[in-house]
């Protein structure tokens, strides 16, 4: 199966997912084909309920697709949820150490590695903090560090900043861009309904239509990083994408 071209961080082909609904089945994702290259940052943009979480859960291997295939070379991808999903019975550092342990790292090395990862998301002093002692933004940074601890080459992110206030979200965008650059060949598949967020972060934006979710359009973003969410180029492209997104959504109002 391996050709030169298959060396993608993830290769999704003709992916279809439907759920039982009433007497029949509701098709949530229809014939999605999408690849993410090694080191590439891709955002998938779509309206609420269009199947973004469904897509990521499939890629993460948490659910099985109705049809189609998902190929991921190497280990299981890391997944960051909208809610932090940190374990409240462990401290921030222990959460990360658990990921390290499950990945098979020797006991003696875990503590130092956890400290290093916390340092990477600029939470050097937070090792012993319980989850409830951290602010929303700090929790998502610990969750990011825990995801990085899996040392997977593919990071899946399901609207991880949606619940944060605008200022914190802005800071975490900068932080994520920095961490992604620092990690070298880390591929990111980031899902959001926020157009500016998509443009701010990605090298490529994929627009998902709703009911059923299929790929409507794709944009390449060549604005150099570090970008700011209020940059003129970001705003311009966002406007174009928003128009397309509105068109997609208003299709559903007509019948």
């Amino acid at each position: 199966m391996s050709s030169v071209l298959t060396e993608a961080a993830v290769r999704i082909e003709h992916l279809t997912m439907s759920f039982p609904a009433g007497t029949g089945r509701q098709v949530v994702l229809n014939d999605i084909s999408l690849s993410v290259a090694p080191g590439e940052f891709v955002t998938v943009l779509g309206a609420s309920g269009c199947g973004k979480s469904t897509l990521l859960n499939l890629v993460a291997g948490l659910d099985r697709p109705t049809a189609g295939s998902i190929e991921i070379p190497g280990e299981r991808p890391a997944l960051m949820f909208q809610e932090h999903a940190l374990f409240p019975w462990l401290t921030a550092g222990q959460n990360i150490e658990l990921a390290l342990k499950l990945r098979g790292m020797a006991k003696g090395e875990r503590r130092a590695e956890a400290e290093r990862l916390l340092e990477l998301v600029r939470l050097g002093g937070a090792y012993g903090k319980r989850v409830h002692e951290l602010s929303g933004g700090m929790r998502q940074r610990v969750a990011l560090a825990r995801a990085l601890a899996q040392d997977s080459r593919l990071l899946l992110m399901d609207e991880p900043f949606a619940a944060l206030d605008a200022i914190t979200r802005d800071v975490l965008h900068d932080e994520l861009t920095r961490v992604w650059a620092a990690q070298g060949r880390l591929s990111v598949l980031f899902v959001t309904h926020n157009v500016r967020e998509a443009v701010r972060l990605a090298q490529r934006v994929v627009l998902l239509s709703s009911r059923p979710g299929r790929i409507a359009r794709e944009w390449t973003v060549d604005i150099p990083q570090p970008r700011r969410i209020e940059d003129a180029d970001v705003a311009e492209l966002s406007q174009e994408i928003t128009q397309q997104l509105r068109k997609e959504i208003s299709r559903h109002g007509r019948h």
Partner: peptide, 12 residues
């Protein structure tokens, strides 16, 4: 359920 799902993505 989110804890169980998070655990599974981490290999637990």
């Amino acid at each position: 359920p989110i804890y169980l799902r998070a655990g599974r993505t981490m290999g637990a």
